[in-house]
């Protein structure tokens, strides 16, 4: 644990300024007295990509929801861009496992929905042009006016990336965004995500169950242990950027994957 903190401090010096700061965040669900998070502190730096990995039920989604301002922590502080998070914020973009596009809106209408809700119909209309550009970026040119039931699972998830990006959020919170996709599309989507994050200089925080996915995308991987949910270790991934899928066959990649798997197995014994 100590060494992990040291690693973080070390790598922090190379990256940008702190964007997200969580200090001593704990969460106990009142309904069933489950301690979902216990004393979690972390710092995300500008343009960094971090992942959180851990067994099912260890509190990953809870952590993300607290960071997004969807639920309050029982104790502790969450600060984003020097302002405490006390509710949903426009500088946060979020994506879930399901694309959740609304079937009565075309792809492009789904994408401008966040603008429509925040700034009204007129603003949404102005954002249409940008929505078209985003669809082009994720490879959905020509599908602007298609209704979601004509999109495949992967295409729907691409559209939901666009919906997240349209408000130009400073941070992206991703809760297993591609876990419903097959492995091939998933790899492609991950590379796409990396490219988008680089282009937009976005800070990303990804919840995943896949060690490979975490390693190929992240600068830092937060390993969580369950009951109560807490950060056990921070693993730094010093593979060069941009990452490519070929890197998954390198010994270094394998070594990091093995190391994290070891940490997670240890967690299961506890």
């Amino acid at each position: 644990m100590n060494s992990a903190i040291a690693t973080q401090a070390h790598s922090g010096a190379q990256l940008g300024a702190p964007v997200y700061e969580l200090s001593n965040v704990s969460k106990t669900y009142a309904r069933n007295q489950v301690v979902a998070l216990d004393d979690v502190s972390l710092t995300l730096r500008k343009s960094s990509f971090s992942s959180v990995i851990g067994s099912s039920g260890c509190g990953k989604s809870t952590l993300l929801k607290i960071m997004a301002g969807l639920i309050p922590p029982t104790s502790g502080r969450v600060v984003l861009q020097d302002r405490p998070v006390t509710g949903p914020r426009r500088d946060i973009g979020m994506m879930f496992q399901h694309a959740t596009l609304f079937p009565w809106r075309t792809a492009v209408e789904n994408i401008v929905l966040p603008i429509e809700i925040r700034d009204g119909r007129a603003a949404a209309k102005k954002a249409l042009e940008k929505a078209h550009e985003l669809l082009d970026i994720v490879g959905l040119k020509g599908f602007e006016n298609v209704y979601p039931n004509e999109l495949s699972g992967g295409m729907a998830q691409r559209a939901s990336i666009c919906r997240m990006l349209i408000t130009e959020p400073a941070v992206l919170l991703l809760d297993e965004p591609f876990s419903a996709l097959d492995e091939l599309s998933r790899d492609m989507m991950n590379m796409e995500l990396q490219r988008i994050c680089r282009e937009q200089h976005a800070t990303a925080f990804l919840v995943t169950h896949s060690i490979q996915e975490a390693v190929i995308l992240s600068d830092h991987i937060y390993v969580m242990k369950p009951r109560p949910g807490r950060l056990a270790e921070i693993v730094e991934v010093d593979l060069p950027r941009p990452r490519t899928l070929d890197m998954m066959t390198t010994p270094k990649f394998g070594a990091i994957v093995d190391y994290i798997r070891g940490l997670l197995d240890k967690g299961e014994d506890m």
């Binding site: 399901h98 959740t100 929905l113």
Partner: peptide, 27 residues
């Protein structure tokens, strides 16, 4: 409306009225 749609509207900072009109009623 399922939990995902509700959560999504919450992240977008939608008011109760917006959630009703733009999501719950059409659903």
């Amino acid at each position: 409306a399922d939990e995902n749609a509700r959560m999504l509207f919450k992240t977008m900072g939608a008011s109760r009225m917006q959630t009703l009109i733009k999501m719950k009623l059409p659903t």
